[in-house]
């Protein structure tokens, strides 16, 4: 049987919100170590990889590995009923044909419980190699969100280039061109405000802004976002969840015609 109790249930709600615009049906894989998700959007352009360690939970029991096949629009409807300070409990039998969800609130004394039918989802698993990337940039997630949102008015493609000058986001469209340059900045006392750029060699790649904007739905999960790029490879956009896990997005580049 599988049983997990998360004092800060809101973390799980934010994870659901961070992927539900990209994919409809997902398997949540449960093992003795973690809950994890790997799924692609229907166009196979973007991949989401989520991991939440068992150490994030107050109680975690998973007798044998199982996959919980969920329809995210339905899960999202249920999580709308979760209060901000609720504790979340998940339970499933080894047969994994339904999932029990409970939202508990000690202060108000309420317990809401839901039983959700699970589905068998055929999912293609991609083998994502553990690569050393040529550029790694850490920046405030709110700043990344603002940049990719603002650049949408200029065009639908964003050129991301990492050079000695800094990290540059550019978009070109009918009305003209916009560039936003982020320089390394470690002046602030708060580490989450820092911009750090590790560059082994310059990289310049083009990406669809629509997808970059989908990914920023993970912003509430983490004050910082990590961008990793290598020439001719999909970009990795990682939102660490404290020391307990992450939501990572992989996005295939747009090629020059």
């Amino acid at each position: 049987m599988f049983e997990a109790r998360l004092a800060n249930g809101n973390i799980f709600k934010m994870i659901v919100e961070s992927i539900r615009e990209l994919v409809v049906d997902v398997n949540i894989d449960c093992s003795t170590e973690e809950l994890s998700i790997q799924c692609m959007d229907s166009a196979h352009v973007a991949l989401v990889s989520m991991s939440l360690s068992q150490s994030a939970f107050d109680h975690f029991r998973c007798d044998r590995s199982l996959s919980l096949g969920l329809n995210l629009p339905n899960v999202s409807k249920i999580f709308k009923m979760m209060g901000r300070d609720d504790t979340m409990v998940l339970k499933a039998e080894d047969s994994a044909d339904k999932l029990m969800l409970m939202f508990e609130n000690d202060k108000s004394g309420t317990i809401a419980d839901f039983e959700l039918k699970l589905m068998a989802i055929e999912a293609e698993q991609l083998g994502v190699p553990d690569t050393a990337y040529k550029c790694s940039i850490s920046m405030p997630s709110s700043e990344f969100q603002r940049i990719v949102r603002d650049l949408q008015v200029m065009g639908d493609t964003c050129k991301i280039s990492c050079t000695k000058e800094g990290l540059k986001f550019s978009a070109t469209g009918q009305i003209g061109t916009g560039n936003i340059l982020m320089r390394q900045n470690v002046a602030s006392e708060k580490e989450e405000d820092h911009v750090t750029i590790d560059m082994e060699e310059p990289v310049e790649l083009n990406f669809a802004l629509r997808y970059l904007n989908f990914f920023t739905k993970a912003t509430p999960l983490s004050p910082t976002v990590i961008l990793k790029m290598s020439p001719g490879l999909p970009i990795v956009i990682e939102y660490p969840i404290e020391q307990l896990g992450h939501v990572k997005y992989y996005l295939a580049p747009k090629m020059e015609e």
Binding site: A43, H44, E124, L126, G127, P234, Y250
Partner: peptide, 14 residues
């Protein structure tokens, strides 16, 4: 602008 690549062009199935 530009042709959108897919992830299968980079990653194999596991």
């Amino acid at each position: 602008s530009g042709l959108q690549a897919t992830l299968q062009q980079y990653f194999g199935y596991s």
